[in-house]
Amino acid sequence: MDQIIDFFKHLIDPEWIIAHGGLYLILGIVFAETGLFVGFFLPGDSLLFVAGIYVEELAAHFFNVPYILIIAMIALTGIIGNMVGYWFGKKSGPLLFKRKDTFLFKKKHLWQAKEFYDKYGGGAIFVSRFLPVVRTFAPIVAGIVNMERKKFMFWNVVGSISWVFSMMLAGHFLNKAIPTLKDHLEWIIIIIVVITTLPVAIKFIFGKSPIHKHFDEFGNPIEQPPVKEEIKS
C-alpha cells in the first residue's frame, strides 16, 4: 500500500517523471490528463514547463531527433487525449452524471466543466487547456452535449499546440537565458501551480456557482445535462 501511495506522489513530481520515465511517461501523463477523467490530478503545466527545460536531453535519448519534434509529439498526444475524452463523453452521455462519486471521480468536476463550456462555447476547449481539472473534463462534456466534430477538432488542435508549445518553449528558452534555472525547480513548480490553479480556486471559493443546485442532499443529480441531437447531413 505504501508503495502505491509513493508512486502516486511521484506522479505529481515533474522532476521524478522526467528522470524515471522520460518521454514515454510524459506522453502517458499528458494523454491521461487530457483524455481520461481519472487523470485530473496529474501535473500538466508544470510538467510541460520542466520538460521544456530538459527537452534537448529528451530529444538526445529519443534517436537524437530535433527537440521541436519532441514538443510536436507531446502536442499530438494532447490532441489524441482530447479526442478520446470527446468519444468517451459521446458514448457514455448523461450516464456519467448518474455515476456515484469515487476517490478519482467527482460529479462536481463534470458540472464545473459543463458550466465552463456553456459560458465559453467552442472556445472552452481552447481556454480549458490552460486550466487544471477543467482541461480533463471539458472534452468529455463536449462529447456529452454533442459538440460538432469539426468545431471540436479545430479548437482541440489549436488548444493543444498553443498549450504545449507555449509551456515547453518557455521552459526551454528561460533555461537558456538563466543557466541556474534548474537549481530552483521546486520554487518554479510551486509558482506555476499557484498561477494556473488560482483562477479555478477563486471561482470555487468566491464564485457564485450553481453547481450545488444540480445535486440533492445525497449527491444524486437533480437534472440531466441537455444532450443535443446531432444533425446528420
Rank of each mutant, 00 (worst) to 15 (best):
L181A: 08
F152P: 05
K90I: 08
G171N: 14
F126P: 14
K151S: 02
G122Q: 07
H172M: 14
Y86S: 05
K98C: 00
G122A: 15
I125D: 08
L131A: 13
F173N: 11
F88T: 13
M167E: 02
G143P: 12
R129N: 15
R149K: 14
D118R: 07
G85W: 07
H172G: 10
Q112C: 03
M167L: 14
F88W: 05
V134N: 06
L96T: 06
L181S: 02
P132Y: 03
V145W: 10
L169I: 04
S92H: 01
K100S: 14
V134A: 07
S92A: 13
S128K: 05
S166D: 04
K182Q: 06
F152R: 11
K182S: 05
F165L: 08
V158T: 11
V164H: 00
D118M: 04
K90D: 06
M147C: 09
R135Y: 13
S128P: 12
F103I: 11
F105A: 07
S160N: 11
K98S: 06
P132M: 07
Q112D: 04
R99H: 03
F165S: 04
K98R: 03
D101H: 06
I144K: 05
A138T: 15
K108A: 10
W87V: 15
L169H: 02
F173C: 09
I161R: 03
S162Y: 13
H109P: 02
R129V: 10
K98L: 08
R135M: 08
K151G: 01
P179A: 12
S166A: 09
F137I: 07
M168L: 00
K151P: 00
V164E: 01
P179C: 15
W155K: 10
G93D: 11
A170H: 02
K119S: 12
N156M: 00
G85D: 09
F165H: 01
K150Y: 07
V141H: 11
A177K: 13
F103W: 12
K119E: 14
F154D: 00
K114N: 12
F152V: 12
H172T: 07
S128W: 09
A177F: 11
I178L: 14
F130V: 12
W155G: 05
H109F: 10
F137P: 11
K176F: 01
S162R: 07
P132V: 09
E115C: 01
I125H: 04
K108S: 06
L174V: 15
K100E: 15
K106C: 00
I178T: 06
E148Q: 14
K107A: 06
K182T: 05
I125K: 02
V141A: 10
M168R: 02
M147F: 04
F154Q: 03
I144T: 14
Y117Q: 12
V134H: 06
L169R: 01
H109K: 05
V134G: 13
R99G: 00
G159Q: 06
